[in-house]
Amino acid sequence: MTKLDFAIIDPHIHQWDPYHTPHSAALLVKALGKYPAVMDQVVRWVKPKPLLETIGRTDDVLNPYLPEHYRADLGTFSAESVVHVEANWHHHKGFGVVEETTWLQQLDFNSQGLKLGAIVATADPRDRKFKDILKAHQDASPKFCGIRKMAAWHQDKGVYRWCDRPHLYQNKSFLKGFEQLAKLDLSFDAWGYSTQLLEITSLAKQFPETRIVVDHLATPVGLFGAVGKKTGKTLAQRNAIFKQWQQDIAQLAEQKNVHAKISGLMMPVLGHTYYKQHRTATIAEMVNVLTPLIQHAIQVFGLDRVMFASNFPMDKPNTTLNDLIHAYIQMIAPYGEQALYSVFKQNAANFFQLPLEP
């Protein structure tokens, strides 16, 4: 297997601890944490089916995911630094979101040979106090570098909606608040489904001075199998999803302020069902299914605006992190050694303004 002779930068991981932070499952894990099978059944009884189909396995979100867990998942690879991306902190209204930034500051990354390079927090540009919330994030941590506000909302009611309304990125109040990001030199992680790519493109056009990265290549729901009530159920549907994604993400890539994370592509919401077979995908399987996506992303964005990111532990039901990195090495290696360094390290450092170790 091909190895990397440098430590990567992983610009998209999630950290959480339901036992000690405001978390939607906090009461459940404190009451039933010693009985994981019972806890799983309770979650499947009270949570909506679309959410359960999105996460795949409940244990990955009910258990803590902290620096030591990420370090273990890295296996034989090493990470110079990581970027935490907001993880739906339960106190998510107003200044409550700043609690997550404060909490991250006290996590012991150093003991695991890791460095927290940056924090992508959350805040709602529609909030009248949006500017003050951004400044509160800055006061909470010097590592705060930008925000993510999820807009993922699918027409298929069987696909989980991570946003309270459709077309968030076109909302007038949202757009008015969004002006603050460029003024404060903050970045924006945009996440919508592939059916929303034109909305992300419109946002990028309106704010050319704002650094924007599209998460997970805009998550083409159902590309690899049936999801929700009616998405990706036939080969013809899946081919249409891919062709539309190709067209729309190429249009997004024309906006030079937009970068792309090749991440999240093993999430169950894309139609992967390896976890239902009680196994993870092999390296060869991932290379086979993901190569067309990666090749197209590189073709339209170029090798300087795409970055590998793990999205762990959200992809964990279908893959191990070690195998995922090996698969991406195989997909990127044909572009040359410099491409590997760019995709696994340099591009993330450039976008998130992280110093590189000599």
Rank of each mutant, 00 (worst) to 15 (best):
A182N: 04
A182L: 08
A182D: 09
A182R: 12
K183A: 11
K183V: 05
K183T: 05
L184P: 00
L184N: 03
L184C: 00
L184I: 02
D185T: 02
D185F: 02
L186T: 04
L186P: 01
F188H: 03
A190Y: 10
A190L: 03
A190C: 11
W191F: 11
W191C: 11
G192S: 12
G192Q: 13
G192A: 14
G192E: 13
S194T: 09
S194K: 06
S194I: 04
S194D: 12
T195E: 14
Q196C: 08
Q196M: 15
L197T: 15
L197A: 14
L198H: 11
L198K: 13
E199C: 07
I200W: 02
I200A: 14
S202Q: 14
S202C: 04
L203T: 08
L203P: 11
L203N: 11
L203K: 09
A204F: 05
A204D: 06
A204N: 07
K205L: 10
K205M: 10
K205R: 13
K205H: 11
Q206Y: 01
Q206M: 14
F207T: 12
P208I: 12
P208G: 11
P208A: 10
P208T: 12
P208C: 11
E209M: 10
E209D: 15
E209Q: 15
T210I: 12
T210G: 08
T210K: 12
R211K: 15
I212L: 10
I212W: 06
I212S: 08
I212D: 10
V213C: 14
V213P: 06
V214N: 13
V214D: 08
D215K: 03
D215N: 15
H216S: 06
L217N: 05
L217F: 08
A218C: 14
A218R: 08
A218D: 05
A218K: 07
T219P: 00
T219I: 03
T219R: 09
P220G: 04
P220N: 05
V221I: 15
V221Y: 04
G222D: 01
G222P: 04
G222A: 01
L223W: 01
L223F: 00
L223I: 07
F224V: 10
F224E: 02
F224M: 11
F224S: 03
G225A: 02
G225L: 03
G225M: 05
G225T: 02
G225N: 05
A226R: 05
A226V: 02
V227H: 01
V227W: 00
G228W: 08
G228I: 08
K229S: 11
K230H: 10
K230G: 10
T231L: 06
T231A: 07
T231G: 03
T231Q: 10
G232C: 04
G232K: 07
T234A: 01
T234L: 02
T234H: 03
T234C: 02
A236C: 05
Q237D: 10
Q237G: 00
Q237S: 04
R238Q: 14
N239H: 14
A240V: 07
A240T: 13
